[in-house]
Design a protein around this nucleic acid. Structure first.
Lengths: 121, 121, 121, 121
DNA sequence: GTGGTCTAGACCACA
DNA sequence: GTGGTCTAGACCACA
């Protein structure tokens, strides 16, 4: 798998997992693929996956069971949405507005592009 | 001056300068404050400012004249807007749409917040 | 290692690396020796090597992979040759011709010397 | 007047003067335009011209007469040609050959371009 | 281990 | 005065 250069790989992988949880691909209480398997799959050092799982666990999005592996928390979706919404409101939105203002982009243009985006899904 | 922890200081300073250029506070062909002076002003090491200026020069936003200092390029605003627009279209907008979709935020809500944002300016 | 005084050391090292790439000593996708190791080898400060690598990366001749090191780009040779050719045509050749004219040197003399140069390789 | 960024301005001006001497525009024993006048003409700080004249004087290409100004030496042309030839043979030519070799440029191509160059003069 | 950033301080050429 | 380069050394995130 290809990763961006600018963001830490372990965080990029964490984001991918969160997205799958939000899209119900990983159901609550479901078991996550093992660190080694995932490491092979995305072609990354197992240490990096270890770090991803640790990071998600720290946020109570996933949890460990000794000898069994990592599992999705019951309230994982809620947790992720809360975190994302906060991130969205405090940093992304202000940044968006500043750029719209400076670059002279109207809300109508954004809406149009959004319709196109929705259709493609 | 206080800086965020996540982004390199030299890049944060570069962003500040770009914003001032966009807002016409630094006119084309205008001389930038010297490396040493700016270093004192924002309380960082001169090397850090040096790096900021080098970075902006590399993007043809500013240029140097031997022994005289750094100056704003004639087409600095255009350069910055082009770079920003590209960044906006390729990374911010897709990210925005993904979040709107996953978090269930409507364009109407965005618009409302934008009106509030505009009023405050 | 000994360096000339007139050109910045970090640029001299960059030129050396480019030459090795052109001569296939550093194959595409090959890993470059680490900053610290090269610093020891050529007896300069690691910061200077850092600068060399940054400079080459900025020209897309090499690229970085987090935590792993620097690698030669796939099209590194093409990139270097393009840059050199441009430099050659716009500055070296006119300079050569001006000198031939002013110093009264003929193309035949140049050719003779070139033959000698080729033989020595 | 416009100057390149990479080479010191005082040296660029020195080169221009040498060229004029070689082309007999400044005859031996002829008086050079005064520092202040030349400074105005090429839009440069008088200190810079001062440095140019000092540099040329140091190489016995020009000389001063108190209260009268700077004058072209009798053997200025010979001096310049000797210096240039040395520079040409020791640094330019090897550089040229290296580039011809690495970029795959033949002596025939050089010759062709030289004919074009000569015609334009 | 790897690179990235920053400070502190020095010396230089140049205008 | 101006910027450009370099050393020395530190701390950090990351794989």
């Amino acid at each position: 798998m290809e990763f961006q250069d600018k963001k830490a790989i372990y965080l990029q992988i964490a984001a991918l997992i969160c997205e799958k949880i939000l899209l119900d691909e990983y159901p609550p209480a479901g078991r996550l693929i093992s660190i080694r398997e995932l490491a092979v799959e995305v072609e990354v050092n197992p240490n990096t996956i270890q770090r991803t799982y640790e990071y998600l666990q720290q946020q109570n999005i996933i949890f460990t069971q000794r000898g069994l592996g990592y599992f999705v928390s019951e309230d994982a979706k809620a947790k992720i949405m809360t975190l994302r919404k906060e991130q969205f409101l405090t940093t992304e939105l202000p940044q968006l507005f500043k750029n719209m203002y400076l670059l002279g982009i109207t809300i109508t243009e954004i809406e149009k592009k959004y319709q196109e985006y929705i259709v493609k899904l």
